[in-house]
Design a protein around this nucleic acid. Sequence first.
DNA 1: CCAAAAGTGTTTCTATTACACCCATGT
DNA 2: ACATGGGTGTAATAGAAACACTTTTGG
Lengths: 229, 229
Amino acid sequence: MTPQHYRKADRLLVAADCIIFGFDGRELKVLIVKRSFEPEAGRWSLVGGFVDARESVNDAAARILKRLTGLDNIYMEQLHCFGDVNRDPAARVISIAYFALINIADYSRQLNLEHEPHWCSLKNLPDLIFDHGQMVKLAVERLQQKIATHPVGFELLPRKFTLPQLQNLYEAIYQAKLDRRNFSRKILSLGILKKLDEKEKGSSKKGAFLYVFDRKRYEQLSHEGLKFV
Amino acid sequence: MTPQHYRKADRLLVAADCIIFGFDGRELKVLIVKRSFEPEAGRWSLVGGFVDARESVNDAAARILKRLTGLDNIYMEQLHCFGDVNRDPAARVISIAYFALINIADYSRQLNLEHEPHWCSLKNLPDLIFDHGQMVKLAVERLQQKIATHPVGFELLPRKFTLPQLQNLYEAIYQAKLDRRNFSRKILSLGILKKLDEKEKGSSKKGAFLYVFDRKRYEQLSHEGLKFV
DNA sequence: CCAAAAGTGTTTCTATTACACCCATGT
DNA sequence: ACATGGGTGTAATAGAAACACTTTTGG
């Protein structure tokens, strides 16, 4: 029974759109799809869908992400509500944008190819429909802020990773070179990485030691007070 | 003409709720109102209302703020979308929360008393309806982050203010004491305050010099790079 | 003359930056 | 043996924190 006062209020279509970031070891990538329905069918777009009356907006975003990637339990965070009247020329639709961080290797196993997904490097992103380009731009800014103070970079890497890999990730996200010595000192001084006895020999002859993120140790620390860069 | 694919999607009620911060020289306050309709009529709530199909979500928030405070051109920023299914037990309503910063003195002239507005100090905030308590909590966190790097504190003060007043504001927002000498050195070193020849003598015998925020100077600087605390 | 708040300078310590050499190994 | 990328230490600098005395003036 809808209360009296709510009756005359308008009801709107509500979408959830996901900026899905991935990292291939070199570049930061965004997952885009070919839109399969009108308007703008055939053009590149973010993964999205409508929020159902019987699910929370967060759940909707997770459902949409899972539909495409087959992945559960992904790092995902609400970004912003895009609410301009004509952002979708076909109807009044507001969109809640989310950004997600996934490990490309995990993902590629579970890929749902139905929508022609494509990892696109940030630098040569095509024009996206509606305000999706703005969404990506804002998401990159938020990711830059986030990764400076929260341990989210690990979401983009395999469970075991090397310091050079981690540094490449930060460099890709900030589009800037970092000093190797300063970077490793700072990251290691946080005390949240466990060094393994194994080495990764993929990218050099000497090989680089593998590390894992020690979430327990992290939980014991200040949570908000860490500074990664 | 709504496209085919949109037809079967659910339409939801969308609200905009505002966390309106004010500062009385001592404490950070939030503006709350007595809710005048069911459900939860008579209980304390944030200022809010439904988003209209023909206005952007941001415009809706500004309209709602204006209705209560009579004020235009207020500093306002989107906070977060609250989208749980049962956040409003009476109907499926998602809410886009905004926070606004206003100068209590300006405001009190224009006050719309219809809704029994009340400046409530953060420390003894009563229980609010729905998830409005959470909204306030999140807004305070965001304000703390924001004010550390952006010149938004001035929105909460009169146009002319003293350094002790500005420091009180920061102390109220962070709930922490700051060192007077370090604070004034740091703020002044940003070069975005113009010192006036007048003194404010309200709160001390000696009187404190008045300053104004020099927005032009600020615009010329890095914009994102400033650090206030 | 004294209480109360404003103004100001120096020292210490910590964090950041800049920078160069040796190591391990596959070819 | 050498090229490639990995690992590490130190010195200089900048920024943050800690700290105490003098000034003004209304009562």
